[in-house]
Design a binder for these strands. Structure first.
Lengths: 343, 343
DNA sequence: TTGAAAGCGCTAACAC
DNA sequence: GTGTTAGCGCTTTCAA
């Protein structure tokens, strides 16, 4: 294929439409934007001209003139694919039918690149941004955003610092519930696979676990607490180490479903049956936990719905509608087949 | 949260930078865009002013002036999440470090909305677009794109019609290989779960199956051929129907991995063991097939790499570099644990 | 109800 | 090397 590929003939502009309809460009603009004060007859003439010429407004010119791009950004890290997918689907779902497009802005490591994120947003010319964890918890990013006056919506931050709006989930309570569930089933030698240490959710969930252990009067064995990365592979690796111990745990609390399924795979590789010999629970209620075998018991975090809500928060800000500071979302224990009653 | 949220003080423009640096706006522009013919001393002055003012170019103004948005679109349907994720990651991977952003443009049903796709692209103001199947096969979309001179790259179309460029995979050969693999293992009563009927890949893969069956002298039983949708659920449903038959198949060819894993789940629900009592194979080599149990035998389609290549094709077009018409990618049989030798 | 003209912030063409 | 002057295509005063 040869390069030149000229951009075709000259583009049709609002001037052409105005000329053809015999009106001014301002009138065309009025019709296009549904503004009042145009006679119906004139409206029709303009619409005919638009159709006849197959006119499409130049979005960048519009953007320049009205100072908005009709683009929104989604900033996220990429640890768990299942989380990311739901997140994105939620945003897209809310955007359906709205005159806004989604620009995806994955950031390798928010912790390492926090100072570049806002520059990224400016250069992407987005009107606003949905911040997934851990960006939703990054003080530098938030402060800068407030500084330049760019609207945002925070997803599931672990602390607010009076920076709003956002949607929330009680990570601590959710983690407490799932840990309590495992403790209730008689497990005492329980391992924990934490998420990415740079995500504050990892600490929040750990806190929830600790509360449940304390309530049950059980001590957490530090030797059984490992760091993961929220990925399948990291769960696999951590579980393999755990299961190779002299005194392997009877249950594993993984801080998300990807890692739980990774742990499942590790158990299988060494011939340990779940849940017969080992119980495993996750966190999130991702697709991956539903299709695994056995299906993993988890605590549901409504990621899709939170993404929908957060996007709504953004759209409302654009519309000048007052928005609530915090939109809470509920977690829910989902009992499936990966936990067994002990003793 | 209250709405007004003023857009802050007036934005800093190139004029401010020029004034502060004591040069013309054009010179600032030159420095910013790394153009030659500027004295090093002047360059420094401009850079200092940029830093001091925390100046960020207005992307829409740039876009309007140079007639490019630095946005690229990705058009896809959403049947298989695992496919979509890999696709998107491939595009994003290629875009890393490039001054282009990705706008995701999911379309519910390409077949039903083909005529709206190009309008969508225009209104998204993208410079070019990566077309995933089935959009990459839609003649209307392609013709319109050629008509308005918008660069594109087709991913794995099943027929070219001289509309290039794109990346390709031999769906027929890949399907033939995986079917032959199952036939080689002695299976004769083989069911087929096809993909979405509106995707031409479904027919191409079917053709590959037929060739393998013909070569083995085996007839395809039409009663064992069911339509799926490329989703886990559709694979589950189809397999359940298959396994409820008086004479259930001994093997299932699913046209992608999501459906294969769905079939796996269906088998488990009725107590049929895979691969002991039933062999199942997929197509794609998606993440889902690797984490399932047993891990599913499949034929690899390098979706990620194809997305990378396609995006490269687009960037090269922007750069005016001549690009190859077709970039072929290879498939590869991946033997795992879901097929058993019969008899 | 409609239009003329002045931006929006940047780059391109052409001087100097 | 550097600056001047037009646009890019649309929306917005503000008149009429």
């Amino acid at each position: 294929m040869q390069p030149p590929r000229s951009r075709g003939p000259k583009r049709i502009t609002i001037v052409d439409v105005a000329a053809r309809a015999g009106v001014s460009t301002k009138t065309v603009s009025r019709v296009l934007n549904g503004e009042p004060h145009v006679k119906e007859a004139v409206r029709d003439k303009v619409r005919d001209a638009v159709r006849a010429l197959d006119y499409h407004p130049n979005v960048m010119a519009q953007g320049l003139a009205r100072q908005r791009s009709h683009l929104i950004g989604l900033v996220y890290e990429n640890p768990s694919p299942s989380y990311t997918v739901e997140l994105q689907m939620g945003v897209l779902d809310r955007l359906r039918g709205e005159p806004y497009r989604l620009v995806v802005l994955p950031v390798r490591s928010i912790a390492d690149h926090a100072d570049e994120v806002v520059g990224l947003l400016r250069s992407a010319a987005v009107d606003g941004v949905v911040l997934a964890p851990p960006a939703s918890n990054d003080r530098r990013i938030l402060d800068e955003l407030v500084g330049i006056g760019m609207p945002f919506a925070r997803i599931a931050p672990t602390r607010w610092d009076d920076i709003v709006p956002g949607v929330t989930l009680d990570d601590i309570a959710a983690a407490r519930d799932i840990a309590a569930h495992v403790l209730d089933h008689g497990h005492r030698r329980i391992a924990i696979i934490k998420g990415d240490p740079t995500h504050t959710a990892s600490d929040a969930r750990m806190t929830g676990y600790e509360q449940a252990f304390a309530a049950a009067g059980v001590a957490i064995d530090p030797a059984l607490v490992l760091d993961g990365r929220f990925t399948f592979d990291s769960g696999f690796t951590a579980a393999r180490a755990l299961l190779a111990m002299d005194q392997p745990p009877t249950a594993i609390l993984a801080q998300n479903d990807d890692m739980a399924v990774g742990a499942l795979m590790a158990a299988r590789e060494v011939g340990i049956e779940v849940p017969a010999q080992l119980s495993i629970v996750g966190f999130d209620d991702s697709e991956i936990g539903r299709i695994a075998w056995p299906r993993v018991t988890t605590v549901r975090q409504p990621v899709f719905e939170m993404a929908v809500s957060a996007t709504g928060l953004l759209l409302d800000q654009f519309a000048g509608v007052p928005v609530p500071d915090v939109l809470p979302h509920d977690h829910r224990l989902i009992e499936r087949d990966s936990v067994r009653k002990l003793g």
